[in-house]
């Protein structure tokens, strides 16, 4: 087998793997919102609250602290207050509603909300080339963040 063949086959295998992963995921266009929020997990894989905390504070991912204070992350510098404090948020909202808020809060609050939709292709005008057709968080990152939010009880 030539070197080139190997690389090609390897690439095909990688593509096959990633489509397999995506096949079991709910795509951003088909997320189902009900009055209770988004009831079904986007991936079927339980969210990991530790990974969720990471995605929550990472400025390239959730960057949730840009707009929300969160006493659980008191060690992090600079919590914003564009949105409400998230302390005890799991006492206020059930998991399906937390998932709906993270997926696309415009379905929960109003179209006017400043909070971005993290698993939505309903973006603004002129999306930068690198982000076209992409969601801010992956389906699994949403599940992880939702699992983390579930730990914020008072």
């Amino acid at each position: 087998m030539t070197r080139r063949m190997k690389i090609t086959l390897g690439a095909i295998a990688a593509v096959a793997l990633s489509t397999a992963a995506i096949a079991s995921e709910v795509s951003p266009e088909t997320v189902e919102f009900t009055d209770d929020g988004v009831a079904v997990s986007l991936t079927g894989v339980a969210g990991d609250p530790v990974a969720g905390a990471e995605a929550f504070k990472n400025r390239r991912l959730g960057n949730c602290l840009a707009c929300h204070a969160n006493a659980d992350m008191a060690g992090e510098l600079f919590h914003g207050n564009v949105g409400p404090e998230l302390d005890g948020v799991a006492d206020r909202w059930e998991e399906p509603m937390l998932r709906a808020i993270v997926v696309n809060s415009k379905h929960v609050f109003t179209d006017e909300t400043v909070m971005p939709g993290f698993y939505s292709l309903d973006a603004g005008k002129d999306v930068a080339k690198d982000f076209v057709g992409k969601t801010i968080l992956t389906a699994q990152q949403v599940e992880d963040v939702v699992a983390y939010l579930g730990t914020l009880k008072e």
Partner: peptide, 14 residues
């Protein structure tokens, strides 16, 4: 007032 980008924010949002 037009929202732009993946974050879907307008000048007015901020």
């Amino acid at each position: 007032y037009t929202r732009t980008g993946q974050l879907n924010l307008a000048c007015a949002s901020c």
